[in-house]
């Protein structure tokens, strides 16, 4: 599609059908996005299920990795919500591992970053908010809506405060999804642009001398992107924990 030498940083986000499938009139084709979702789940399953299969008291490498992931997410969750948050542990763990694996696998050259599509991150954000709402209402009934009524506010200010609280609650899934989406998208575009600069400069005769400069930047950006890939998965998880904490302990 893109002519050689042209900068096409968007091409990497294109969905390509690998196996066309049509279900109930919807296009459910197995795409490159679906393939990398399956790969992400497979990698996580390999580490978590196969890695822990030995049940060794003294863990091997893969089991250490599985235990590390378990304890990392468990500590994050209990640190924010306390012990009672552990009932959401499988959900939070799956969320973190999926986003983390998708982000990291997206760093492989030629791979597809599933979390760089707004629909995926928005689906995760809506899932989180749905879980928070359901857990809050099931656990506390109408008392859960006390979340929107801050205590110790003068009566005439209360409608305003409730409005602000509602807006802030509604904007949570938007910020949650946009943050992850924007980070993954921008990082990959930046990498592609600088990589393409190198190629373009090399093909431009005397200006080829300058080619190492964008290459250096691309190397630095790659390191940064690995950090961002982890950090965004962590931010997504810890915000999920914070929202779950609201559902567990409303009225703070």
């Amino acid at each position: 599609m893109a002519q050689p030498g042209t900068i096409d940083p968007i091409h990497q986000f294109e969905i390509q059908k690998l196996v066309p499938i049509n279900l109930f009139g919807f296009d459910m084709s197995f795409t490159n996005s679906a393939l990398w979702m399956v790969i992400a789940v497979s990698v996580i399953t390999l580490v978590m299920v196969y890695g822990s299969a030995a049940r060794a008291v003294v863990p091997g490498r893969l089991q250490s990795l599985a235990e590390m992931a378990y304890e990392f997410v468990a500590n994050t969750l209990t640190g924010v919500t306390g012990r009672e948050g552990m009932k959401f542990f499988p959900f939070v763990f799956s969320l973190f591992m999926f986003v983390f694996a998708a982000n990291m696998l997206g760093m492989l050259p030629g791979s597809f970053t599933t979390t760089s599509h707004i629909i995926v991150t928005a689906a995760f954000a809506m899932l989180v908010i749905t879980v928070v709402l359901v857990a809050g209402i099931v656990g506390h009934g109408s008392h859960f809506f006390g979340l929107f009524v801050p205590s110790g506010v003068p009566g005439w200010l209360l409608p305003f405060m409730v409005l602000i609280e509602v807006v802030s609650f509604v904007s949570r899934p938007i910020s949650l999804s946009l943050r992850l989406f924007g980070n993954m998208l921008a990082g990959h575009i930046a990498l592609k642009v600088f990589g393409a600069f190198v190629a373009a400069l090399l093909g431009a005769g005397a200006a080829g001398i300058l080619a190492p400069l964008p290459l250096l930047l691309a190397v630095a950006l790659t390191a940064l992107e690995f950090l961002v890939a982890f950090l965004q998965a962590y931010v997504f998880t810890i915000l999920t924990c914070v929202y779950l904490n609201d559902a567990l302990h409303p009225g703070h």
């Binding site: 969905i15 296009d27 459910m28 795409t31 996005s33 679906a34 599933t114 599509h117 689906a123």
Partner: peptide, 10 residues
């Protein structure tokens, strides 16, 4: 047009 498929596979 890709949303439904992505949501399904997700």
């Amino acid at each position: 047009s890709t949303f439904a498929g992505q949501l399904f596979w997700l």
